[in-house]
Amino acid sequence: MVVKFQVFKKSSPNSKVTIYLTKREYVDHSSHVDKVEGVVLFDPNFVQDRNVYVQMGLIFRFGREDEESMGYNFVKTLYLDTTQLYPPLKEVKTSEIQRNLINRLGNFAFAFNLEFPKLASPSYTMMRGYEDEGPLINMEYEVMGFVGVNEQDMDKWSVANLTVRRLMECPARFFDRPAPDGSITKTFLTCSGTVTIQASLNSSVYFPDEEINVKVCLKNHASREVKRLKVKVVQLSEVPMFSTNQVRDKTLMKADDLIGLAPGACTNREFVMVARVPARTATGKIFLQGKLRKDAEDQLAPSTVTHPTVSKDDIFGIYVQYAVRVKAALGPLFGDAVLDIPFTLAARPE
């Protein structure tokens, strides 16, 4: 039986260094991230008495490219997990694919293994509106092989780099969690009495485009009529490295029920919602899963699940969560009662 292995290849502009990866998508299991395995091939006549390195780069864009001015750009790049391949400093444990590549490529092919940082987020990118040009906010990784006297001596003509994607996996234990529910009782300054919202979902984990069944019980003990009941699926996002407790919420889908609930009355309602990528507007602002190809289909960014030892506030990158938001509105002069029921959005297997 003949077994075929797929590898990804990229050469430097001067064709003196070539990097090979066994895959370009790596799963973040929250407890650990798959290792990056590959091989670097180089021309010894070009290297001479210099060294050959392999390095992982973490690139975070946090602003519009067309707004950059006066030499300032909205990109932070961290170079991490650098390994010297030649002259070799240590023995590398190789996989079968790496050994097959080395046997085929010759004596100047060296294997490497790299680790993703625990404190960094998965590959996320912000959806662009039809008026936007270039990336707005995104998080991506690349693996680079290069020649230099030291780690800082990186000549762009001898750098072979491949973009890779870090995908978030929903832990299996999340699927065993009970369906979430919640309640809130709200008092108002401009009228007497309270409004109580009780709501529940039918599952704790959903996939994109999967139906979310929402049950709502609304009790109006206020002196004013509850005019409408609103239910939304919202994406909640933060960038902990820049701000603390500043959460952006963007609506993915909404339902508006003009109930006209009189004082002393109660009602039960059921809604079917879906977490899906909304239609592209003038400005996007929804976080999506990072893509390796521009023509790939847009997918919602899955919920971020951090490593057990990592605090959300320490994350370098983007933190994404989801919730069903239930709002009872008494009118503009009296205020609203708002209840959020969080759930986990899992990436659909590809």
Rank of each mutant, 00 (worst) to 15 (best):
V3H: 09
V7N: 06
K9H: 06
R24K: 10
E25D: 02
H29K: 13
G38R: 08
V40N: 00
L41T: 02
F46A: 01
Q48D: 00
D49Y: 08
V54R: 02
L58V: 08
E67H: 12
S69I: 10
G71I: 12
Y72W: 11
N73H: 11
F74S: 07
F74L: 04
K76I: 08
Q84R: 14
S95F: 08
E96P: 03
E96K: 11
L101D: 06
L101C: 08
L105W: 12
N107R: 15
F108Y: 15
E115F: 12
L119Q: 11
P122K: 14
Y124S: 09
M127A: 09
Y130S: 05
D132P: 06
I137F: 04
E142L: 05
E142N: 08
V143Y: 01
M144W: 02
E151P: 01
K156S: 01
V159N: 00
R165H: 06
R165A: 00
R166T: 04
R166H: 04
E169N: 06
D181I: 10
D181N: 15
D181F: 15
S183T: 14
C191S: 13
S192C: 09
V195H: 10
S200Q: 14
V205L: 12
F207V: 10
E210V: 03
H221Y: 08
A222L: 05
L229R: 13
V239F: 08
P240Y: 15
N245G: 06
D249W: 11
K250Y: 13
D256E: 13
D257L: 13
C266Y: 15
A275Q: 11
A282L: 05
G284M: 04
L292I: 10
R293P: 00
K294I: 14
D298F: 05
L300R: 13
T304W: 10
V305Y: 04
H307A: 03
V310E: 02
V310Q: 10
F334N: 07
L339V: 14
P342S: 13
